[in-house]
Computed example of a mutant assay.
Amino acid sequence: MAVMQAGSREEFLSEIVRFTQQLGFQTVSATMVLDHVLADSEFITVDNAPDAYRTAFLSRENWRRDPVMQHCKRQSVPIIWNQATYTKDGQGEIWEEQARFGYRAGIAMALHLPEGRHFMLGVERDQGVPADPVELMRIVADLQLLTVHAQEAAGRIFVPVAPDKSVTTLTPRELEALRWTMEGKTAWEVGNILGISERTAVLHVNNAMHKLGCVNKHQAVLKALRMGLLR
């Protein structure tokens, strides 16, 4: 699938838009969600939403109320949605607003991956989805295939693991100190767990921060997670 060859966000978006429009849908969005232990989840989205609708489309408050987004947050099975999906959930005003921009019906799905990663893909159009169940099944199958391939490309493009020679200098103790810091332990608790003094525990964390180029321990943990050093 061509999206696998994308080398940038622009190429990625171009390929999923092209595929989506071939299926008869006007708009598409792809979102990578990265769960962090010591911080809020990180959302990375590419889409071809109309400019006039983009602010509302990317609103986290709307996402928390949107029944389609809530379905994708909890499940991996695709959801085929229309106005009734919103009205039965008491969110008809969300549908009314998005319908003005062509978001009247669509299909969305999510992949929930290891290490706190999630990937969501949704396509929309200004008319109902095809009524023919065979045609609809074919579209859903094509979108599932696109989602799998797009997720792999998005992981490579959105959250690349940059080589960092300093990583090789992290000692086992520094990694252990970071790992327990990730679990919310204080320097005193880390020291007790590792059988070292509180001062030495602080030193290990500070050394890891310096080697990772971070200004505090929370940033160091997040970077170590991103680079695959902590799981």
Rank of each mutant, 00 (worst) to 15 (best):
119 F>R: 03
89 D>G: 12
164 D>T: 00
64 R>H: 09
71 H>S: 10
208 A>F: 03
132 D>C: 09
163 P>V: 15
101 F>N: 05
89 D>R: 14
207 N>V: 05
128 G>V: 03
17 V>I: 14
226 R>T: 01
84 A>W: 09
196 I>N: 03
56 A>S: 12
212 L>W: 09
99 A>K: 10
37 V>I: 15
228 G>E: 06
13 L>W: 04
2 A>T: 13
44 I>N: 04
229 L>Q: 00
163 P>K: 15
18 R>K: 12
172 P>S: 08
109 M>Q: 15
59 S>L: 07
60 R>C: 04
36 H>C: 02
67 P>I: 01
18 R>D: 12
145 L>D: 14
194 L>F: 06
227 M>Q: 07
181 T>K: 06
26 Q>K: 12
183 E>D: 13
38 L>D: 00
150 A>M: 07
84 A>T: 12
121 L>G: 04
183 E>N: 06
34 L>H: 06
204 H>Y: 14
82 N>G: 11
168 T>N: 08
161 V>M: 09
42 E>N: 08
115 E>L: 09
54 R>Y: 02
140 V>L: 02
123 V>W: 02
77 V>S: 14
223 K>A: 05
144 Q>T: 08
189 E>P: 01
1 M>P: 01
94 I>L: 12
158 F>M: 15
165 K>H: 13
87 T>Y: 06
144 Q>P: 03
222 L>N: 06
217 K>A: 14
108 A>D: 10
153 A>T: 10
76 S>M: 14
172 P>A: 10
208 A>C: 07
